[in-house]
């Protein structure tokens, strides 16, 4: 667990506390973790295997990303109870940890340092996406002006 980036910075005892808040499940090849539109309540952390994130647009399913070991996804469910924006399917036998929303709320009160580390990693991910989106928009604006 120390090698999983979202848990980087946690000490031994904190990892021990965190393990009690995580659920573990192994998904077989082809099993669906969640579908686009499902209300999400858990963050998924991939320990081993491979997960495909798929989005349905106009009836067509496109793979938008392949999650590799050590990465996490589904983090928006921890922040707000909204429908999932993509589906997740196991491309091979995959072992995942699930961090359920209320477990994180419980960590905020009982082990705030652990919760702070997790939220920091989530914030870094969101900040990176926002920056990427702004860069993309700027590039599109410049291109349209150039035309």
């Amino acid at each position: 667990m120390r090698t999983i980036p979202i848990f980087a910075g946690l000490r031994g005892r904190e990892l021990g506390r965190l393990i009690q808040s995580l659920y573990q499940r192994t998904y077989q090849k082809g099993e669906s973790l969640f579908n686009q539109g499902d209300i999400g309540r858990a963050l998924f952390i991939l320990e081993s295997g491979q997960i495909a994130l798929l989005r349905q647009d106009n009836g067509l399913e496109n793979k938008i990303y392949t999650v590799k070991p050590g990465e996490f996804f589904g983090e928006m469910a921890l922040l707000e109870e909204r429908p999932r924006t993509a589906s997740a399917r196991a491309e091979e036998i995959s072992r995942l940890y699930l961090l359920y929303r209320t477990e994180l709320d419980d960590l905020v009160h009982s082990a705030p340092r652990i919760a702070a580390v997790i939220f920091r990693h989530l914030a870094e991910r969101l900040s990176g996406r926002l920056r990427e989106r702004q860069d993309t928009r700027l590039a599109e604006t410049l291109l349209s002006r150039a035309r």
Partner: peptide, 10 residues
């Protein structure tokens, strides 16, 4: 069933 894991946790 894999699709109902989050509901089960809920």
């Amino acid at each position: 069933p894999s699709h109902y894991v989050e509901q089960l946790l809920h």
